[in-house]
Write a protein that binds this DNA or RNA. Sequence first.
DNA 1: AGAAATTTGTTCGTATGTATA
DNA 2: TTATACATACGAACAAATTTC
Lengths: 232, 232
Amino acid sequence: MSTMDNREPKKDKPYQIVIDQVKKEILTGNLKPGDRLPGEREMAEQLGISRNSVREGLRILENMGVTTSQHGAGHYVSLCFDEPMTETLSLIYTMKGLVRDDLTQFRYCLEREAMYLAMSNASERQKRQIEEHLDALLRAQTEKDRYVHDMALHMTLIEASGNDYLITAYRALTNVIEYYIPVFRGKIIEGMKSNDKLEDAHRTLVMGVMNGDLSLGLEGLDRHFEYIRLFQ
Amino acid sequence: MSTMDNREPKKDKPYQIVIDQVKKEILTGNLKPGDRLPGEREMAEQLGISRNSVREGLRILENMGVTTSQHGAGHYVSLCFDEPMTETLSLIYTMKGLVRDDLTQFRYCLEREAMYLAMSNASERQKRQIEEHLDALLRAQTEKDRYVHDMALHMTLIEASGNDYLITAYRALTNVIEYYIPVFRGKIIEGMKSNDKLEDAHRTLVMGVMNGDLSLGLEGLDRHFEYIRLFQ
DNA sequence: AGAAATTTGTTCGTATGTATA
DNA sequence: TTATACATACGAACAAATTTC
């Protein structure tokens, strides 16, 4: 038998080799979203590991949202990265114990920054969308409708910031609210009942965005969260 | 109790069965941090799937930070969850395309909120740590030392906020800087050269934290990032 | 349309290094 | 030291889905 290929201090686990390899190919631009990865057997031979190990690595990448697998076809680089990530996030959050106040505080922090950035980065289309969601929100008859348009309004504001890090973080946050703490959502909806104070906060907030008036927008935001904090 | 969101009557993949099972055991309190999982063979037989499938599932759980594996011993429920998550987060961030300005802007946003929260949440120990890092930073002789203590100072401030969501997001950000863009780090270090303006910003920032003076702390923070933005 | 080739999905068997009693 | 249980890793085989000719 040949001598052990005693490489280095670091004995990388086989599946980690796969992960690092794919990461590298993506980061160097060699692999782009939508591209197909080499076959499992090919990677196994190329990296000098077994197919089972390749599969372990690919499963992890898939779970991280980096790749997707298609039975009979192959593995592909994902087009959208943030969906499965929120699953990981939410599990961790759940295990660490959700702190509702902290979640709201963090959400406020993100929206505040978004308001600031939106002043210079919001497109006309986004401004229009925000206004439309406000209209729909004010006209909404059911609590569910109010919830939907409220969320959409805030999400559009976040997107108008143009900052991907901020957008990703906010998406993960709302996902946690949406899928993992129905109680939380219920309380929000409960507090969403037609209410002058809340409606006024939204109007002020949107007016600030439309007119490029930062302090007005922030005032609306503050009033909004002031109200939210009452219901938690 | 309504269980997992089975949107479709979809036949669960074998490795997903493992993940769901372990999740369930943990969430019901049947498995606690530090506990040992059943052996791979045992789980395979119990769940009616193969060992390789069990392994794929366990690898994913390990990657999510839920479990750890020990060669020859077994799989255990993790005691600390957030490290692998920040790795996932940072990878996703990187994949989405790095925009240096956006990264700095987001970092500022988080630190600003942390400053606000630290005013009421920082422990005496954390305050002392921040002061110590400032001292070490001012006395540092090498650029690397300056970088280390600079990072540590800011990280302690973030931790002093007491908000886990914020802390997690910031960890992911610094991870991106540390591991994925050495160029970025290089520029930061370059801008770190002994400089009165930067030192003063740090002093002001820390003084604000120590004295519970929010506006002073924010002023230091603003000056700090003003300086950072010059070097990017 | 249909058959063959390709690829992922899943399983079993086996060998090896490690931890523990 | 020995024995046992365990994770690690590899290779081969077949099933199922997809692509290709």
